[in-house]
């Protein structure tokens, strides 16, 4: 009597017995995609954009603390760029064929009022918050917060590590730590509102702008990279060189590396795998 793959019968074979048909259903590298180098380089712009934005924020803080940049000017810049940004956002939306509703404007205004009100009223607490804590501790904490922010930021992929709210919260925590090192209420207020603009509004606008045209994406990425490297250059040459090399590695070396590693991929799939649930919604409907 030939062996059959059933568990409900005792066929007299040992438990771990399999016959020659065992490996017939094995499949290799099912989900492998072949990457195009320049396409990968182009898509890596999302990462460089975010790193650049974070660096720009840090440079702004350095200027503000050094007294080079006056808080009033920063507030003015923030408000102006907000207006311009919103107009650009609306224009891009129209270009993409979306209808901009009037209620959306109200929602934006309400959010802005909430931001400004709470930031302004809590700034007096914020700027004395970490008075007794040493500056190095705060800086170290901020570095870890921003690194975490860059790590879990939503670059448009669906990985388990990505958490939009977590990345925003980490960025805000880091910027509030920095804000608490400043000396006056106005300084604190300006840097916190600038942080909101950089970490909440700018990614939204960037995504919108980059969705309109391929050239736009290239332009925005190149512009932000250049701006961040230049801004850092004015503060510290070493940091600027480091940032430039990071940009280079992320944009050109990492895609190369990714493509070179593809041949080493060795996935096997077969009947021994656990069941792969294809569509969550489908399963939910069935249940």
């Amino acid at each position: 009597m030939p062996w059959r793959k059933v568990l409900y019968e005792d066929q007299g074979y040992p438990d771990n017995y399999v016959d020659s048909s065992f490996l017939e259903q094995m499949q290799k590298n099912l989900n492998t995609r072949s990457y195009d180098y320049w396409n990968t380089v182009y898509e890596s712009g999302a990462v460089t954009d975010h790193i650049s934005a974070t660096c720009l924020f840090v440079v702004t803080f350095v200027y503000l603390e050094a007294g080079v940049l006056s808080p009033k000017l920063l507030i003015l810049l923030t408000v102006a760029s907000c207006f311009l940004g919103y107009i650009a956002y609306a224009a891009c939306a129209v270009h993409l064929g979306e209808t901009v509703q009037k209620s959306h404007l109200w929602i934006v205004i309400r959010s802005a009022v909430v931001f400004l009100l709470f930031t302004f009223s809590l700034s007096p607490i914020l700027y004395t918050l970490t008075e007794s804590v040493s500056t190095d501790t705060i800086y170290a904490m901020t570095v870890f917060m921003f690194l975490g922010n860059i790590l879990v930021f939503d670059y448009g992929t669906t990985a388990a590590i990505v958490s939009e709210s977590m990345s925003f919260n980490l960025a805000m925590f880091g910027s509030m730590c920095l804000a608490s090192r400043l000396t006056t209420v106005l300084h604190t207020f300006s840097i916190v509102s600038f942080a909101v603009e950089v970490f909440a509004l700018w990614p939204e606008l960037r995504r919108k702008v980059q969705a309109t045209h391929r050239g736009c994406k290239m332009g925005v990425s190149c512009g932000s990279v250049l701006a961040s490297v230049y801004a850092l250059w004015t503060v510290s040459t070493v940091a600027a060189v480091l940032l430039g090399s990071v940009h280079f590695v992320v944009t050109f070396l990492c895609p190369r590396w990714l493509i070179q590693l593809q041949p080493y991929k060795n996935n096997i799939q077969g009947p021994w795998d656990e069941v792969n649930i294809v569509d969550k919604m489908e399963v939910r409907k069935m249940l």
Partner: peptide
């Protein structure tokens, strides 16, 4: 849970303050 940006901002602001106090 999916929070709004202003909820997240306020929450983090209060979290920072409470943590340091």
């Amino acid at each position: 849970c999916q929070y709004n940006v202003d909820q997240l901002f306020l929450g983090t602001l209060l979290f920072t303050i409470l943590l340091f106090l």
